[in-house]
């Protein structure tokens, strides 16, 4: 119990330092670009592959079900509804948590252990402004874009399954998206809003784990594991809460 309170205090202090560091914030473009590269560009392939196969599986399963009811023209609508609203932000969040969150925690943990963060302090550089914010900001910017990529690729995967493999009319596939109940402002944009929250959550959790790493090489292992566990579980919880509020 006492331990839990101490962790909570540590976490709140971390958030406080993060917010206070905003006044020293001078965004370095080079820092920012390399962080955007790490968080965004290098996750893109993973996101695209996942989107491709999730779209295919979703279309495959829905095809069987809808064929039974003779409502195959609704296929794209069903796929888009399930993917755009829930699956695409959540899966993107989980993948980013696994790919970027662990990297951040390990990187920061290594820096902390090598006393690089302390030496930054010696130079009078605020490590929160210099190290944490570019990473956090990169995640906040990149996650919604990754969600968009996920959306587009998964709907194309469903199109490939229905049209190319099963000979559905391409026009019939696309029309329900425009005239059905899939709205850009609701389904696609709300997925992006969610992604911003997920990105922030993953960033804060991973950076916190890295910044307060334990001594020894097992400390880094523990920090990166904790980062992934906390961010993944958090993404799923946040998703429910945000869905309640948004829709």
């Amino acid at each position: 119990m006492f331990n839990l309170l101490r962790v909570l205090e540590q976490f709140l202090r971390f958030i406080g330092c993060l917010l206070l560091a905003l006044q020293y914030g001078r965004l370095l473009p080079r820092q920012m670009i390399s962080q955007l590269h790490i968080a965004g560009v290098s996750s893109l392939v993973l996101i695209c592959i996942s989107a491709l196969f999730i779209g295919l599986v979703f279309a495959f399963q829905m095809y069987i079900v809808l064929e039974g009811f003779g409502s195959l023209p609704q296929l794209s609508q069903v796929v888009a509804f399930g993917l755009f609203r829930e699956l695409s932000p959540v899966v993107t969040g989980l993948l980013v948590a696994g790919r970027v969150g662990s990297t951040l925690a390990a990187e920061l943990g290594q820096m902390k252990q090598a006393e690089q963060i302390d030496s930054l302090l010696m130079w009078g550089i605020n490590s929160y402004a210099y190290l944490m914010w570019p990473r956090l900001l990169a995640l906040l910017i990149v996650t919604p874009i990754l969600v968009l990529a996920f959306d587009a690729i998964s709907i194309y995967a469903a199109w490939f399954y229905a049209v190319t493999l099963h000979g559905m009319e391409s026009q019939i596939f696309w029309t329900p998206l425009v005239f059905g109940s899939i709205y850009f402002e609701v389904d696609v944009l709300y997925g992006m809003y969610k992604a911003v929250f997920f990105g922030g959550w993953i960033g804060v959790m991973s950076l916190y784990q890295g910044a307060f790493v334990e001594r020894g090489s097992s400390g880094i292992a523990k920090a990166s594991t904790q980062a992934v566990v906390l961010s993944s579980a958090g993404v799923l919880m946040l998703d429910y809460v945000l869905s309640q509020f948004l829709y």
């Binding site: 874009i145 959306d151 696309w174 005239f179 899939i182 402002e185």
Partner: peptide
Amino acid sequence: WMDLSVGSFFILGLSVFFFLSSITGQV
């Protein structure tokens, strides 16, 4: 190369944004 890849990442994001807005219905 890094600058280029980050730039094209954003261009890709923007074009996907418009693509999705064109294939889905508007309120």
